[in-house]
Amino acid sequence: MTTTARVLGLDLAAEMSGYAVLPDGPVGTITAPKPRGARRTLADDLDRLDHVARAVEALLDKHRPNLVVLEDYAPGLRSSAAHRLAEVSGCVRLAARRARVPLVLAGVGQIKLYATGQGGATKSAMAVSLYKRAGLEYGEDEVDAWWAAALGADHLGAPVVTVPAAHRAVLDRIAWPVLGGAA
């Protein structure tokens, strides 16, 4: 694919999700609305899902990526946050499907391997790698999303950063979608 390939990388969380549109789009966060009261209610949860879904739909509509790379759930995630994350992720997956943008799930360790060469790297190690390789500085959520998008851009043949061959080997271990159709 040519260097016009555009990838949306997403690092989802219940309260604040990172996004990056590479090679030339914005990098930022989607912050969930605050609960109305002292305790989060079903209405608050629905507001959060609607807010994230609309934000991702707007990114898809405005930037028209060729691929969405979504950081998959962390292995062993077991908590009430896991349920909220699953709900948010479902909304995002559906938004990509409706926009007819192929979606790939990249494991947390796969993104870390691509970024640093270490599957168990810390978020700070990923940020350091981003600074060393691209001269960029972002918060933790944006860093993960940036690396997810970079991984996808490399797969499309339009790398936005140079990483060692050992890091790139992770590309062969991801179940990439067939491009050109709905995910």
Rank of each mutant, 00 (worst) to 15 (best):
T116C: 04
A13S: 14
G152W: 03
V104I: 12
T3D: 14
A134D: 08
L156H: 08
L136A: 12
P159T: 04
V27Q: 08
G90V: 08
H51E: 15
L94D: 06
L156N: 03
Y131R: 15
A183C: 14
V88M: 09
D45I: 14
N66C: 11
R93H: 01
G139L: 04
T116H: 01
S89Y: 05
A127L: 08
R93N: 01
L67M: 11
G90Y: 03
C91E: 13
V52M: 01
W176N: 11
Q118S: 07
N66P: 03
H155Y: 13
A134H: 05
P177Q: 12
V178I: 08
G181A: 11
P26F: 09
L130D: 02
E87I: 00
T4N: 10
P102V: 05
V161S: 04
V7I: 08
N66Y: 00
T4D: 12
E137S: 15
P35W: 11
N66S: 11
A95V: 03
K34V: 00
A32W: 03
Y138K: 07
T116A: 05
G152A: 04
D72Q: 12
A5V: 06
M126S: 07
G152H: 03
A55I: 06
S80H: 08
E57T: 15
V68S: 09
G117I: 02
A150L: 03
A165F: 01
L22T: 04
R84L: 15
R40C: 09
H167I: 07
L105W: 13
G117K: 07
A182C: 08
G117E: 08
I30S: 00
P65R: 07
L156M: 10
L12Y: 06
K34F: 00
G120Y: 06
V161Y: 01
A153K: 08
A134Y: 05
A99C: 00
V128Q: 14
G18T: 01
D172E: 15
A165L: 10
V104M: 05
A32R: 06
R133E: 04
A81L: 13
D24K: 07
Y73H: 11
G37P: 00
L94H: 09
V178T: 09
P159R: 04
W147Q: 02
V56Q: 06
K123H: 03
T162N: 10
L94I: 13
H83C: 15
R64T: 10
L59I: 14
D72I: 07
S89L: 11
G180N: 08
P75D: 15
L8N: 03
L179T: 06
A165D: 13
A149S: 05
L94M: 13
Y114L: 02
R168K: 09
Q118Y: 10
H63M: 13
Y73S: 15
L130R: 02
A125V: 14
R100G: 12
Y114D: 07
D24P: 11
K34A: 02
D72K: 14
A134K: 04
A115Q: 04
D47I: 13
A13C: 11
A175N: 00
K123E: 03
G90I: 05
L151K: 11
L46Y: 08
L46V: 13
V68R: 09
A182V: 11
P164S: 12
R93L: 04
T31Q: 01
E137I: 09
R78Y: 08
S89I: 10
A81H: 12
G107M: 12
E71K: 03
D11M: 10
